[in-house]
């Protein structure tokens, strides 16, 4: 592959996959895919394919990992060794996965009513079976549906999406190639009810003005993402006339 620069990633205002700068990839979510779990969901976000499952609350083990005042969220984000188009990966957690797991745990700690379950843990698993850029955002969006299905009380159903920068253009939801050659990447998770951010990471070069536009783009995309999440949940119930 010839060395790409970010300027090669956009031609006549369109991206390599034909999208406009503010266009999401196609997203579909299916709830209740893992029978053993309290709640689960599967997401296809562009070429990303991710499954998520929620277990608990159950007694925090080992005991010292628990909190006698409230529940602890233990998120585990991992990528399958066959998930990338590149070489065979190592299964389990590398340093990147440890960091993503930590920030994802924090996203969900923000919305779960933790004080209801002192001494307990809630396990949230996110397994990337196929990755094509933006897996942490897709994983959080998927896990949020799994969590809603679990019946664990939450304040909101968060969504996540990443905004990047190619040359001087802000682009929504970068895929892997764009991510590899972009000038900046800003993954975000947002609670739709109050619009507040619970995940914000940044890598690259960005002005303050660009950052606020990036957040605005993410919020706007959230309307679509939230609708897809809600449809996936609603689909499990069909008609409502209880």
């Amino acid at each position: 592959m010839s060395k790409k620069e970010s300027k090669d990633l956009m031609i006549d205002g369109k991206r390599l996959d034909g999208r406009n700068p503010d266009e999401l990839r196609s997203i579909s979510i299916k709830a209740n895919v893992i029978k053993n779990a309290m709640g689960s969901a599967y997401i296809e976000w562009g070429m990303n394919k991710i499954v998520s499952a929620v277990y608990g609350p159950s007694e925090a083990l080992p005991k010292h990992t628990g909190d006698s005042e409230k529940a602890t969220i233990k998120c585990r984000y991992t990528m399958a060794p066959f998930s990338s188009l590149e070489e065979h990966g190592r299964p389990g957690m590398n340093r990147r996965a440890v960091e993503i797991s930590k920030v994802t745990s924090e996203v969900f700690s923000n919305i779960v009513l933790l004080e209801k379950f002192p001494g307990n843990e809630i396990d949230i698993y996110i397994e990337v079976l196929q990755g094509d850029g933006g897996t942490r955002a897709a994983g959080i969006t998927c896990a949020a549906v799994a969590l809603a299905m679990s019946g664990i009380p939450i304040r909101d159903i968060p969504f996540a999406v990443s905004v990047g920068k190619i040359g001087r253009t802000l682009v929504l939801d970068m895929n892997k190639i764009e991510d590899n050659y972009s000038d900046a990447d800003v993954p975000m998770a947002i609670n739709p009810r109050n619009g507040e951010l619970t995940l914000l990471q940044m890598d690259g070069i960005l002005t303050g003005e660009e950052l606020s536009r990036a957040i605005e783009m993410a919020r706007h995309a959230g309307e679509t993402i939230s609708r897809i999440q809600r449809n996936a949940i609603g689909e499990q119930y069909g008609q409502i006339d209880a």
Partner: peptide, 25 residues
């Protein structure tokens, strides 16, 4: 099912569900 992998297959037997991926390096 996982086209990034060189080969893949998803198998269910009843409620058991597995996916296999093949990578060639």
């Amino acid at each position: 099912t996982m086209p990034n992998a060189e080969g893949s297959a998803e198998v269910s037997i009843g409620d058991t569900k597995v996916v296999a991926g093949v990578k060639i390096d």
